[in-house]
Simulated assay, not measured.
Amino acid sequence: MSRIVYVNGEYVPEEEAKISVFDRGFLFADAVYEVTTVLDGKLCEFEGHCARLQRSTAELEMPLPWSREELLEIHRELIARNELIEGMIYLQVSRGAPADRDFHYPEAGTQPSLVMFTQAKSLVDNPSAARGNKVISVEDIRWARRDIKTVQLLAASMAKMQAEAAGADDAWFVQDGLVNEGSSNNAWIVTKQGTLVTRDLSRLLLPGITRASVLKYAEAAQLKFEERPFTIAEAQDAAEAFSTSASAFVMPVVEVDGVSLGDGTPGPVTKRLRELYIDESRKALL
């Protein structure tokens, strides 16, 4: 059955969804995106994703003419039309396609493009959460503004392919000997003293919505945490490790560059945080 996709004001079957070849998102990766989780047919952490979208477009001096209420209505309409119970909604805003290819931004007043579609996927009962992921480290070759959620994802795709070729599940980006983040997630370790560690926010990494919630829930649960850089060696010596993202929640990491963590299975702190995140998220679905 064909999905219904939203393209610039219209809900159309995915086979009919089209956008101009002159769109700057296609030609220059001049676009930003968000992925919002759907659980039980409702939106998870919509407010956070909406706020980050507004920040990303502002950082790129890109117009965002849709209000929070309008974006919420489109999200809900896509859920209804596609009868989505669990999965994700992908949203992409580009600067649009006003004219021929040109490095310069178009004149003010040009209407940006908005594309959204659903992806049905089992998120809560993800088999990877039961066995844990293996990660490798890769050099961070991305551009310098990783705090903006742009569609420039070729380096992330290459990292994931490197991980697959190495028999791993994912990759962590390393710069100057320090872990920035995962290929599509934030990276965490749990020290042998039980302290959660994840890198402090800067232009080096994306301010993850799930990351922020996990920090909030950890504090409420009186778990110690530190926002600071860590090395691969420190990760290999940790009691546990995990990643956080909208589509994977809290995902255990059981091996880093060939070194098993603990007994090689998801640890108790990670399991607790995953359960806590899912439970708390379900209480606040929109």
Rank of each mutant, 00 (worst) to 15 (best):
N82H: 07
R131P: 04
R95K: 11
S128N: 13
D125P: 04
G109P: 03
D100R: 15
M116D: 00
Y90F: 12
P112D: 08
V93R: 01
L123G: 05
S113P: 03
N126A: 04
P127N: 09
G96C: 05
Y90D: 01
E107T: 08
E77M: 06
R95D: 01
I85R: 15
E86P: 09
L114G: 01
V115Y: 13
E83Y: 04
P98H: 04
D102W: 09
A129G: 12
A108V: 06
T110N: 13
D125R: 14
L91H: 12
D125Q: 12
F117D: 03
Q111G: 02
P106L: 01
P98C: 02
M88D: 09
F117W: 14
D100S: 14
I89G: 04
I79E: 08
E83A: 14
A120H: 11
E77G: 04
D100N: 14
V124P: 02
A108Q: 08
H104Y: 11
R131F: 07
L91S: 10
A130H: 12
R95W: 02
M116Q: 10
E107A: 15
R131S: 08
E107F: 06
A120G: 08
R101K: 11
D100H: 15
I89S: 02
S113R: 05
E83S: 15
K121S: 11
A99L: 11
A80K: 14
K121T: 09
E83K: 15
A80V: 03
Q92Y: 04
G109Q: 06
I89A: 06
R81W: 04
P112E: 07
D102G: 02
F103A: 05
P106E: 01
R95A: 00
I79S: 10
R95Q: 09
S128G: 10
P127D: 08
T118M: 11
P106T: 00
M88N: 13
I85Q: 15
